[in-house]
């Protein structure tokens, strides 16, 4: 969960100072290279490069591991399948390709504030204005999604605990119904809070007629 939410590790490394757009472009470029690489030796070099980037960022081993951890079982499964159905070198290449790509993406998250990411996204999305979409809203949607992950996880835990407290061990319906209800209620409250913070108004002039 932490891989997505508030993963930013404050710092002053060159990677932290790089603009979000440059980092995303770099990420795209490096991932392309990863796809093109074939030999295990080349992968070893790539791993070294990624290692150096992490060292430069100074985010620490724990934060780095937290980024890769979610794919660990997938990596193991992929490795086993590749060994069985292909051969050892291709197993090594495909697994390192996945792990390194995830690590690189994680490095971008670890060194970029959500605000910077949003600002970049908004600039990229500005052509959306021509088809009537508001780039600010689109990027707000993104950050709300990120923010909602821990809130939802929290709601799920609470529903689970309430069930246990009543002696219900496991029932899909008794889990899903209250979770959906509280999610909807949360969405409602969030919408209200957003409009209380003035985020539903577009202009700076006189107000709109209320609905």
């Amino acid at each position: 969960m932490n891989g997505l939410t508030g993963a930013y590790v404050p710092g002053d490394s060159p990677l932290h100072r790089l603009p979000a757009g440059a980092k995303l472009a770099g990420l795209a470029a490096l991932c392309t290279v990863l796809v093109l690489l074939r030999a295990p030796v080349a992968m070893a070099v790539a791993a070294l490069v990624v290692g150096v980037l992490f060292a430069v960022s100074g985010v620490g081993a724990a934060a780095a591991w937290a980024q890769v951890r979610p794919v660990r079982w997938f990596a193991v499964a992929l490795f086993v399948m590749q060994v069985v159905f292909a051969d050892l070198p291709s197993a090594i290449t495909s697994v390192s390709r996945v792990v390194l790509a995830v690590a690189l993406a994680g490095l971008v998250t670890l060194t970029t504030r959500t605000v910077a990411m949003m600002a970049f996204l908004e600039r990229c999305l500005s052509p959306a204005r021509w088809v009537g979409l508001d780039p600010f809203r689109l990027s707000l949607l993104l950050s709300l999604t990120i923010r909602s992950v821990p809130v939802m996880a929290d709601l799920a835990t609470r529903v689970r605990e309430a069930q246990r407290a009543r002696g219900v061990e496991w029932s899909v319906r008794a889990f899903a119904v209250p979770l959906v209800v509280s999610a909807l209620r949360h969405a409602d409250a969030l919408g209200e809070a957003l409009s209380a913070r003035g985020l539903d108004d577009h202009d700076e002039g006189t107000g709109h007629a209320a609905p």
């Binding site: 508030g6 504030r113 950050s143 709300l144 990120i146 923010r147 929290d154 969030l190 809070a193 957003l194």
Partner: peptide, 8 residues
């Protein structure tokens, strides 16, 4: 929880 809209 419903008022905080940004991750940090």
């Amino acid at each position: 929880d419903a008022q905080i809209v940004m991750p940090t």
